[in-house]
């Protein structure tokens, strides 16, 4: 069996002149949580819709579990559960009836309904009409729908969209718990902090192009460690630091420069010797956000 749960080869989607996704070669490994990152409109949802066969690719192909989606759509989708963008459920039906609807289409027994409701912690509201659900509850119901049939691959497109902080935390904890149950997860988001907390792998898409993909650990290692210094008087400090460290710059009253732990002592001595008061000095590891901003081309 292939180690790649999702593989796209030159996947492209054009809308007239506009290229929404361009020659995307995505690779999602079995057992991973793949964070699919990109700004709004970067092409994440279009790519996901092509992976699920909801929209047709202009060019390229999608492989799931090593097999072509085009040729084996039914057999492959049996192993896939998905939540695409907005939560979807029939508002006039109860949560349980919505799950029954999916059970019928997937040909799976109703006894799985209680299991998935327990996983998403929605058993207490199963008989309530969905139109009376909060957004967070709808989101969890959509995830429950995706979990029916115990799929090996879960595709969650912006699963925390529109949720309040506690809702976001609930969904995050839920996603983090799933790989232990054998799921591979592709989760798309424009919230970098979210992906940073849950993903093992990351793919960055910008203007339809996949700019980076790989282990999140390797990605964050690419970044530089920065030394942050807060001191006064600023003018004198700026002059002194610029003479000794040409890469230094001032942002929001904070001097920043690439450096290592060993240099902190040296910098502190220099400042103190020149009668500059230090209010704070610390090392900042690059986070996903700064790396993401480094990877994507700057806006004109």
């Amino acid at each position: 069996m292939s180690d790649l749960v999702i593989e796209t080869k030159n996947l492209t989607r054009c809308y007239g002149e506009f290229v929404a996704v361009q020659s995307m070669n995505m690779q999602v490994l079995r057992g991973s949580i793949y964070g699919f990152l990109g700004e709004n409109g970067a092409g994440k949802t279009t790519a996901i819709r092509m992976i699920l066969g909801l929209i047709h690719a202009t060019n390229g192909e999608v492989y799931l579990f090593g097999q072509s989606l085009k040729k084996n759509r039914h057999a492959l989708l049996r192993h896939v559960g998905a939540l695409v963008e907005t939560p979807s459920a029939f508002g006039h039906l109860s949560g349980k009836d919505n799950l029954k609807y999916i059970c019928k289409l997937r040909n799976i027994p109703y006894n799985q309904i209680d299991e998935v409701l327990d996983i998403v912690d929605l058993a207490y509201a199963k008989d309530k009409l969905v139109r009376k659900y909060s957004l967070g509850m709808r989101q969890r119901l959509s995830i429950a729908m995706a979990l029916l049939g115990q799929p090996q691959l879960l595709i969650l497109d912006e699963p925390t969209n529109g949720l309040d902080p506690s809702g976001i935390r609930e969904i995050r904890d839920l996603i983090k718990s799933l790989p232990a149950k054998g799921y591979t997860i592709l989760v798309s988001s424009h919230l970098l902090s979210e992906v940073e907390q849950i993903a093992s792998h990351v793919g960055i898409i910008h203007a339809g192009q996949l700019l980076y993909q790989g282990e999140i650990e390797n990605f964050t290692k690419r970044g530089q460690t920065m030394i942050h210094i807060k001191c006064s008087p600023i003018t004198k400090a700026m002059q002194l630091l610029e003479e000794n460290y040409p890469q230094v710059y001032l942002e929001n009253g904070l001097f920043q420069m690439p450096g290592s732990e060993e240099q902190i002592d040296e910098i502190a001595r220099l400042l103190v010797y020149n009668q500059i008061s230090i209010h704070g000095i610390y090392l900042q590891q690059s986070n996903l956000e700064s790396l993401f901003l480094d990877v994507i081309p700057k806006k004109q």
Binding site: R49, L54, R73, L76, L77, S88, A89, F90, I102, L105
Partner: peptide, 18 residues
Amino acid sequence: QLYSSNHMWKSTLIQPIS
């Protein structure tokens, strides 16, 4: 409209059914 207004086309069409 039950499908469209509840965004259910996508949930229906990603099921293993033609």
